[in-house]
Amino acid sequence: MGGLPAGAIPQDGHDFALWEKRIDALMVLCGGKGLFTVDGLRRALEDMGEDAFEKHSYYERWIAAVNQNLIEAGVYSLEELGQRMAAVSRRGATYGEAQDG
């Protein structure tokens, strides 16, 4: 996107929430263990298209990229992911309630 026309830079910020810090930690830890590379994450982010940049927040895009790379590395299957996400959703309506235990 370097050099493309764009508007004023939004200067409001936020401190990171726990789920965002966890995604950041998963990125670093999985990279350190050789499950994927930062280049693999960037490739997955780019493949989401320009659209994703507008529609999703930073760490939303990064968990999608982490998941894409873990699937490609065979760490778990799509079936396992789908079943687990369904189970997580059934635990409760909020992030706190959806934790295991």
Binding site: N67, R84, A87, V88, Y95
Partner: peptide
């Protein structure tokens, strides 16, 4: 975030973390 409605991406984060 802990008491707001669970988002799709938060759900994915929990699932990915638990599977790992």
């Amino acid at each position: 975030d802990n008491d707001e409605p669970l988002s799709y991406w938060q759900c994915m984060e929990i699932a990915v973390r638990e599977l790992l």
